[in-house]
């Protein structure tokens, strides 16, 4: 399973897909994020308290502008919270320096974006191994092979993003996100730019990652059908989680 790192002591609990353990992998307490635009303050998160458990696949839904992306950025350590607490695998992100959050992202978080965000100059193979390089443990051929096979990328590794379909690009992005074994995958509308068929493929892969590898996943989506791939759905409105109970 996941290797504990020296920098962030891991909870080290054995995880099983779908099984709830006492310790959440991610926990927020009264989380606020306020953007300042000149003199105007825009509160994007207004006291969000959630818990995500190891092995869970959680969907987040809500209207545009309700703060979903902001929440993903804050819990993934890309942005600093204004107040409240974010505990990721036992580490409080809100008290961390910028470089400590960078290390945390490197070791514990895998992002997937709506726009794929692959590096256009690198082929698929290097887009994926780049993550391993940044991670710092060097190239792990075994892990790479497992991930590439799982995502059905073996035949497309020599292609640049411009030579891949949207679905293929998102699969490469997914491979990049999980190749260095993150504690949690945060996906911001991963199917938002895909046609139905590719969307289904990507969602199926996310479910497979969750079931086969026990990968914890938080996924934002607009689409109720997509949201149904998760174990439960968090509904957001105006910067608040209004309903987090719906479990499938």
């Amino acid at each position: 399973m996941l290797k504990p790192t020296r920098i962030f002591p891991s909870s080290n609990s054995p995880t099983l897909a779908g099984e709830r353990l006492l310790e959440p992998i991610l926990q927020t307490e009264n989380l606020w994020k306020v953007y300042r635009q000149g003199k105007v303050e825009v509160p994007a998160l207004r006291g969000v308290s959630i818990e995500i458990f190891p092995g869970e696949f959680v969907s987040i839904m809500g209207p545009s502008g309700c703060g979903k992306s902001t929440m993903l950025h804050v819990i993934g350590g890309l942005a600093q919270a204004t107040s409240g607490r974010v505990l990721l695998d036992g580490n409080d992100l809100t008290t961390m320096s910028d470089s400590a959050r960078t290390l945390l992202r490197r070791h514990k978080v895998g992002f997937v974006f709506q726009r794929f965000n692959l590096l256009p100059t690198l082929d698929a193979y290097h887009n994926i191994t780049l993550a391993q390089h940044i991670h710092g443990n060097g190239f792990d051929p075994h892990r790479f092979q497992v991930v590439a096979d799982l995502l059905g990328l073996s035949g497309r590794l020599k292609h640049k993003p411009s030579e891949l379909s949207g679905g293929e690009q998102q699969r490469v992005a997914l491979a990049r996100a999980i190749v260095s074994e993150p504690k949690i995958v945060l996906a911001d509308e991963p199917t938002g730019n895909l046609d139905t068929k590719s969307s289904e493929a990507v969602l199926g892969l996310l479910r497979q990652l969750n079931q086969d590898l026990g990968q914890t996943i938080v996924m934002i989506t607009h689409n109720p059908e997509a949201a149904a791939y998760g174990h439960r759905v968090l509904h957001m409105r105006d910067g608040e989680v209004v309903d987090g109970s719906s479990v499938h």
Partner: peptide, 16 residues
């Protein structure tokens, strides 16, 4: 710019 954002999301440090 966006590629730099991607590198940062992957955990690339300032030094990197």
């Amino acid at each position: 710019t966006r590629e730099i954002g991607v590198l940062k999301s992957l955990g690339a440090s300032k030094g990197y």
